[in-house]
Amino acid sequence: MEIMCLNGWGGTLHAALLPYLAEAAPDILCLQEVIHSPSSAQDWLTYRDGDHILLQRANLFRDVASALPEHVAVFCPAAQGELWDGDVSIPSQWGLATFVHRSLPIIGQAQGFVHKDYSAVGFGAHPRSRSAHGVRVWDHEAGRAVSVTHMHGLRDLAGKMDTPERKAQAQRLLELSRQVAAPDDLTVICGDFNVEPDSETLAILAGSGMTDLVTARGFESTRTSHYGKPGRFADYMLIDREDAVARFEVIRDPEVSDHCPLSLRV
């Protein structure tokens, strides 16, 4: 079974992202920074936040679902705000999505918030609402249940330092994972955590018996050449039984986002 985790960057590199996902077709795809604008027929809309202006793929959730037709797709919105088609505002939902191959029975799942609650009247002030999603599947080939939970961690304008909000977020992520997983499950927690390797977030997860594969295996970055800021880590993938890992990669080529895909085979 292959589990992939990726921040899709709102589909900014759509032309590279969609063919890559269609070819890779991981059994479980955990995708963050996903746009869903069901009232718009446009391919692209614009996100505006002060001086921060970024093109967004208007219906990235639909696009990825079309690229993975053999997967069950679940979209988990964190907020609905405005994207722009020229001078026309378009209501657009922002969040994360999970795609599970139809050969894997989904025998449990949970969706919740690790920071704030659903923001229905705008994306809100930073740090914004953040959701998480977990699925429990049965792997018939291995004869076991596997639980996978992911989140998109808080973006704090001050940086990636530890904060009380990030500590609470990590604890809620762990609680959601425990809500999904049974005691004997192989358990994975992943996502764009928006923290450094020495963070309190990773310490909390490590204290629960989880091993982070990015840092434990010596990878020096999870960002691509499209990310120009300092701090080369954001994405992590943790597992409770490292001996179950058949392969783990931080994929640097092709570049399909400003984040690298994390690929775990168990």
Rank of each mutant, 00 (worst) to 15 (best):
P127E: 01
N59F: 02
F75Y: 14
N59P: 09
G81N: 13
V100R: 07
S129H: 11
L186C: 06
G112D: 14
A110R: 15
T163P: 04
K229M: 10
D43H: 15
F219H: 15
P197E: 11
R130G: 09
S199Q: 08
V72M: 10
Q56E: 11
V74F: 04
A206W: 03
L176Q: 02
Q171C: 08
V146L: 11
P197D: 05
C5E: 13
R57D: 03
G218H: 03
V180A: 10
I90N: 03
F75E: 08
E242Y: 01
S39L: 15
W138R: 15
R172C: 06
A15C: 03
V250A: 06
P183M: 05
V88R: 14
A234R: 15
V137F: 01
G8Q: 14
A25Q: 03
I239R: 13
D198S: 11
V146P: 00
T224P: 01
R57G: 05
L83W: 07
C76G: 04
A132W: 00
F61N: 02
I3R: 03
F193I: 07
A125K: 11
L104G: 08
P91W: 12
A41P: 03
H52M: 11
L29N: 05
D162N: 15
G134E: 12
G10S: 02
L154K: 09
W84P: 05
V64R: 09
H52C: 06
G50T: 02
L60W: 01
T211K: 11
A79I: 02
N59A: 04
V34A: 01
L13V: 04
H36T: 11
R178T: 05
A145H: 10
D63K: 14
L54Q: 12
L83H: 14
C76Q: 13
M1S: 04
Q93A: 12
L186E: 08
H14Y: 09
Y227E: 06
A206S: 13
A158T: 14
S147E: 12
A78F: 06
A132P: 04
E175D: 14
H226L: 05
M1F: 00
A182K: 13
D253A: 07
V64Y: 09
S147H: 07
L68T: 07
A246C: 09
A216R: 14
G86C: 07
E200T: 13
S208N: 10
R265E: 13
H259K: 03
H152K: 00
G86V: 07
F123G: 10
A181W: 04
L157E: 15
H126N: 13
K116Q: 14
E70H: 13
E82R: 13
G11N: 00
Q169S: 15
F193K: 05
R57A: 10
V195W: 00
G218M: 04
Q80S: 05
N194D: 15
